[in-house]
Design a protein around this nucleic acid. Structure first.
Length: 810
RNA sequence: GGGCGAGUGGCGGAAUUGGUAGACGCGCUAGACUCAAAAUCUGGUUCUCGCAAGAGAGUGAGGGUUCAAGUCCCUCCUCGCCCACCA
């Protein structure tokens, strides 16, 4: 009898799969397709970690499950290689990022292969390879043509350590998402993608996505659509007009002052008399501070009076204009009408500076509440008195519109996507700046704009990438007029590269175009996208690009991903995050090498708990899974023992257990409940061990074991193919038909019915599966313990839930 | 402050439509095998009382709907995550 030895069988089967090219696929209209992918990894020098092991165990289990179901399954892999770690390493050591990246990829690939993941490696892509970024650049030029890529001078988040600008999504609580340093505001000319033009389209499609609610909510909040009105307040002196944005135009009669953001273009000009000096000082101070610093201490409001007044267009009264940093320059119009009676922030400000508070909505305030923001009938609002505030919103906007003092307006929190990076290791922005023609896109036949090799990768903090110093490369000619011109020296945000790779997998070697629509429309959109990160950034950008491609007629669908499987993190044994400094990192390759093998690792990470939850690694836990695989192994080795006895008494029980397990495992995998699917397999194995003692007929036993192997294969593919061979089956498990079950067979002839008296369990009886309800009720009343509780009383009602229980109500 | 989740044994968790709470695993424990240990196998394991049969309690707290509630409704507490002066 052989012992279970994963380190012997796993490399053997990995080689068989590779030699037989079993995972290489092509368009095949005769089969249902399934396209599954994890979010492609950044191949760091540290190699694969438990998060990768978890993600790709989910991906591969789905891939193998649907393959066994007869689907044509695309399970590709690629590398998200542009980015700061490789460049920082290059700056430190002088090694070209491309070289380090190639080494890291080789290492990652080897590690993934040792996991036994069923990847079609002929489709491997690498975002920093010119054959890939040629098409990233091509997409850029298409967006540029459509006015969706544009340049503008603006205040931007700037990371002083990484010496680059950052997108809003890359600033976390005022700190750089990469290095953690405090970010600053800096005014620069930058490239943007006009994602705001797609705000409504992206919002509309969210509802229909089969994605976790928390991700959908996060995206909805990020887009942050709010409907309101722009209202014009004329200055009391002079021609100028201040436009404010409000979602509560119904409260305009209560607007007792205006507040401008320090960045507002009129803020300084409004200074009058003695107020000029403190106003200027306040504005200069506030603008220097980052937005985050300003918003960090939310408690205490600060601000200064400008000395100027505006006219409330509803009341005609003079209202003072203040400047305060609680109003943000970048949202709405950068100016608000303050309605202190119905807004907490305005109230706090009014209270501190002694400004008037006018109630205009009547409502029941709870004890201790000074203001209300609920709905109610208007008061102190002229001709609108008595109207419900919710109705007044439209009426008042219409009234203002008529007098040309305002209009309905929708605003979004989302800003355009800033994509230029003053760094070397990224896809060059394919633009040439010409003195006569301005920014000109590089024509398709001149793509890719190859990232040149240079000596010194370090940015010098002058707001330009190291590319600016590659004079030979920078100097070129204008595609329009042929005169000398200069290349754009910024590179693209890495998120641009990852916004279309899911399409490239469908047609990865195409040199004529980014993809063949026929192939993409066959494979895409993804059926399953697996990851545990990028709730808004990547997952919003990839949606944005796909919406654009749909508008351009390049793809037949708007949404790139049907089902998003968003998984949790695997923490260290003590429940804290794994980190090198704490020394509590589990290396999945070590786990394999310790002798547990890839099958145990894969099965264990899926058994730990529901995929969406965080879980703590347990060395005892993986040992338990190894024990389980060992039991499966041994069960097959003892095949002859069980068959020799050739008894048939247990055949029916084995059959029932088998069909039950097929149903449970199939259902559970379909609903992503891998932990319970594995638990079901354990139950089945325990049951077979018990039944094995008495033996069975050979064909029943053989089917029981073959089914076990098939159901186990998505989780533990190596042991499955090995045992499949031992059982004398042909070929690989993945080429066999997934087992079927028969609902009729699952119900045993005799079933156990629970008996309750007044809802409390008092006993059990066994009845035939098709027993007559009246008969079951009578039997229930005869049960000794039940009779004791019923006593002399006559049951008022007897409820029978077929196949489950009887409840006797007294 | 806003939004979204979640609270079940010693631990991770299960209970898919309101129908026997605690599947499965870990741990613990008793036994078998062994000179012994490991490995393996078999049994037990929510708490309290009881030799047992069984009884009582029990899914964060309190109330409600129902023959029946972990599941539905209301009030509250705690924790986690995301966003956060967005007018």
């Amino acid at each position: 009898m052989q012992r279970y030895n994963p380190s012997a069988i796993e490399p053997k089967w990995q080689k068989v799969w590779e030699d037989q090219k079993v995972n290489e696929v092509d368009v095949d209209e005769t089969k249902p397709k399934t396209y599954v992918s994890g979010m492609f990894p950044y191949p760091s020098g540290a190699g694969m970690h438990t998060g990768h092991a978890f993600s790709y165990s989910i991906v591969d289990t789905l891939a193998r499950f649907y393959r066994q179901q007869g689907h044509n399954v695309l399970n590709p892999m690629g590398w998200d290689t542009f980015g700061l770690p490789a460049e920082n390493y290059a700056i430190k050591t002088g090694t070209a990022p491309a070289k380090v990246t190639a080494e890291n990829i080789a290492n990652f690939k080897k590690q993934f292969k040792r996991m036994g993941v069923s990847i079609d490696w002929t489709r491997e892509i690498n975002t920093s390879d010119p054959s890939y970024y040629k098409w990233t650049q091509w997409v850029f030029t298409k967006l540029f043509e459509r006015g969706l890529a544009y340049q503008k001078e603006s205040l931007q988040w700037w990371c002083p350590v990484d010496k680059t600008v950052l997108a809003n999504e890359q600033v976390e609580g005022g700190h750089c998402w990469r290095c953690g340093s405090l970010v600053e505001k800096k005014s620069m000319k930058q490239w943007f993608f006009k994602i705001t033009e797609y705000a409504d389209s992206l919002l509309e499609e969210i509802d229909g996505l089969d994605w976790p609610q928390k991700i959908k909510t996060a995206q909805t909040n990020w887009i942050g659509k709010s409907q309101g009105a722009e209202i014009e307040f004329a200055l009391a002196s002079g021609e100028e007009v201040i436009t404010v944005f409000s979602t509560r135009p119904d409260t305009i009669f209560g607007a007792s002052f205006l507040v401008l953001a320090p960045e507002h273009p009129l803020a300084k000009q409004l200074g009058a008399g003695d107020f000029v000096e403190p106003l200027t000082r306040y504005i200069d101070d506030a603008v220097k501070k980052s937005e985050i610093e300003r918003t960090n201490d939310t408690k205490e409001k600060t601000g200064v009076f400008t000395g100027s007044y505006a006219i409330n267009p509803a009341t005609g009264e003079k209202v003072p204009i203040w400047v305060a940093d609680y109003v943000l320059g970048g949202y709405g119009t950068g100016a608000i009408m303050a309605v202190p009676a119905h807004d907490e922030r305005d109230f706090a400000f009014a209270e501190k500076f002694g400004l008037p508070v006018v109630e205009v909505v009547e409502s029941d305030k709870n004890d201790g509440e000074l203001i209300s923001h609920g709905e109610g009938p208007l008061i102190n609002s002229g001709q609108f008195d008595g109207m419900m505030s919710s109705d007044a919103r439209e009426e008042i906007v219409a009234w203002l519109e008529q007098r040309q003092l305002g209009r309905a307006k929708t605003t979004y929190k989302m800003r355009d996507w800033l994509i230029s990076r003053q760094r070397y290791w990224g896809a060059p922005i394919p633009i040439i700046h010409c003195a006569d023609h301005g920014a000109v896109a590089v024509p398709e036949d001149q793509l890719p704009v190859i990232l040149p090799e240079i000596e010194d990768y370090a940015p010098k903090g002058d707001g330009k990438s190291a590319l600016a110093r590659a004079e030979d490369w920078v100097n070129t000619t204008c595609p329009e007029c042929g005169k000398p011109a200069r290349r754009e020296t910024d590179t693209m945000d890495g998120y641009a590269c990852s916004s279309w790779y899911l399409l490239r997998y469908a047609d990865p070697q195409n040199t004529e175009r980014a993809w063949d629509p026929a192939k993409v429309n066959y494979w895409n959109p993804l059926d399953f996208y697996v990851g545990g990160d990028h709730a808004v950034a990547h997952l919003l950008y990839v949606r944005f690009w796909t919406h654009v491609f749909n508008d351009m007629g390049l793809v037949d669908f708007k949404e790139p991903v049907k089902k998003l499987v968003y998984h949790g993190y695997i923490n260290a044994e003590d429940g804290t995050k794994m980190s090198k400094s704490k020394g509590n990192v589990i290396d999945p390759l070590d786990v394999i090498d310790q002798g547990y093998g890839a099958d145990a690792l894969r099965t264990y990470v899926l058994f730990m708990g529901p995929v969406e939850l965080d879980a703590a690694w347990s060395s005892k836990g993986i040992a338990g899974i190894y024990r389980f695989l060992n039991r499966v192994w041994t069960l097959v080795q003892e095949y002859d023992d069980a068959v020799e006895k050739n008894a048939t008494d247990n055949d029916q029980a084995v059959l029932v257990a088998r069909h039950k397990t097929v149903r449970k495992v199939t259902d559970d995998i379909r609903r992503m409940s891998f932990n319970t699917a594995i638990a079901g397999l354990m139950e089945y194995v325990n049951e077979l061990y018990k039944l094995k003692v008495d033996g069975f007929s050979e064909d029943v036993w053989r089917d029981a074991l073959a089914t076990l192997v098939q159901l186990l294969a998505p989780f533990a593919p190596h042991i499955a193919d090995e045992l499949w061979l031992q059982l004398g089956r042909d070929g690989l498990v993945q080429h066999a038909q997934w087992p079927h079950w028969d609902d009729e067979l699952i119900v045993e002839d005799t079933i156990t019915i629970a008996i309750q008296v007044q809802g409390k369990l008092r006993g059990e009886i066994s009845v035939a599966k098709d027993a007559d309800p009246e008969e079951v009720k009578a039997l229930a009343l005869q049960h000794d313990n039940v009779a004791r509780f019923v006593g002399d009383k006559k049951p008022a009602k007897i409820i029978y839930v077929p196949g489950r229980l009887v409840n006797i109500v007294l």
